[in-house]
Computed example of a mutant assay.
Amino acid sequence: MSDPRRPVEYPPRVQRWRFADPPVSRRWFWVAVVTGPLATLVLLGAFVSTIVVESRDAPGLLDDTEVVQVVGEECELMTSTVEGLTLSGPPADRARTLRDQNEAVRQMLQEIRALDDLADRDQPLQAWLEDWDRLVEAREAYAEEVAGGREIDLSVPRDDDGNEITERMDGAGLLVCEVPEALVTPEFGDSREV
């Protein structure tokens, strides 16, 4: 009889089908020796490249941290002001509201330009600000027409390729400051014609 305190021994595992290990070529040995360090160098190079690219200024994008912060704050204030102004009433009131919206944009531009060193830190900032100036000028001309009671659409300035500058402005301010729709396609709050 077996002793209950003694652990039960299992028979050793036997493989019924056993084959010899496949031969390893010396070539594979050297491939393994060379591939490891080479892969390490490639990963290190990719890491360094990412750091270098991230530190450069993207030519068509506002990407400097301080610029993005200032532009984002000023743009948010401008957007809320512009969207809070309703275009309604007689032509003179509508024109006044259009000019008030333009003033909100000018205030944003003034606050951004007050930080002199920012324009040098982010390549597209100066061109982006100039596009805003062009949009405000076009809106001023539009306000004059609206004040005179004329029915016209706002003519957004175009770039050298024939695209509206607002496309370029939105692209540069990617997720930082998009041009509010109220500035590009003014909608009047009442049913009266302009």
Rank of each mutant, 00 (worst) to 15 (best):
L62Q: 09
V48Y: 03
T65R: 15
V67G: 06
L44P: 02
G45F: 14
L62G: 10
V52Q: 08
V71P: 00
V70D: 08
D63E: 13
S55W: 13
V70N: 10
T65P: 01
P59R: 01
I51L: 14
L62A: 14
L62V: 12
S55P: 07
V48T: 12
D57N: 05
D57Q: 07
V68P: 02
V42W: 12
V42P: 13
V42K: 12
L41C: 14
T50H: 03
V48D: 09
V52S: 06
D57V: 04
D57I: 03
A58N: 12
S55R: 07
L41W: 00
V71Y: 00
P59W: 08
L43S: 13
V68C: 01
G45W: 09
D64M: 11
D63T: 09
R56S: 12
S55D: 15
V42D: 04
R56D: 13
L43R: 00
E66H: 12
E54K: 15
G45L: 13
V70Q: 01
V48L: 13
G45Q: 03
V42Y: 11
G72I: 05
T50I: 07
V68I: 12
L61W: 11
A58G: 04
A46V: 12
D57R: 00
A46K: 04
A58Q: 08
L44V: 15
L41I: 02
V67K: 06
D57E: 11
L62Y: 11
P59H: 03
L44Q: 09
V53E: 13
V67F: 07
A39M: 14
T40W: 11
V70M: 06
D63K: 03
T65C: 12
T65E: 05
E66W: 10
D64E: 07
S49K: 03
G72W: 06
V48W: 05
T50E: 08
V48G: 03
T40F: 05
T50D: 05
G60M: 09
G60I: 03
V71S: 03
Q69M: 11
V71C: 00
V67Y: 02
Q69V: 04
L61T: 14
I51N: 04
L62P: 04
V71R: 01
G60F: 04
A58P: 12
V67N: 01
L62C: 13
G45A: 14
G60Q: 04
I51T: 14
V67E: 02
Q69L: 13
T40Y: 03
F47T: 13
I51Q: 08
L61H: 07
D57Y: 00
L61D: 10
A58C: 00
T50P: 01
Q69C: 05
I51Y: 05
V52D: 14
T65F: 14
L41G: 06
V48E: 10
G60K: 04
E66N: 10
V52W: 09
L41M: 02
A46H: 02
V48M: 00
E66C: 05
D63Y: 00
V70A: 10
V67D: 02
V52K: 07
E54S: 15
Q69W: 14
L43M: 06
R56W: 13
R56P: 01
S55K: 06
L43A: 14
D57W: 02
V71F: 00
E66V: 13
L43K: 00
G60C: 04
E66A: 03
L61K: 06
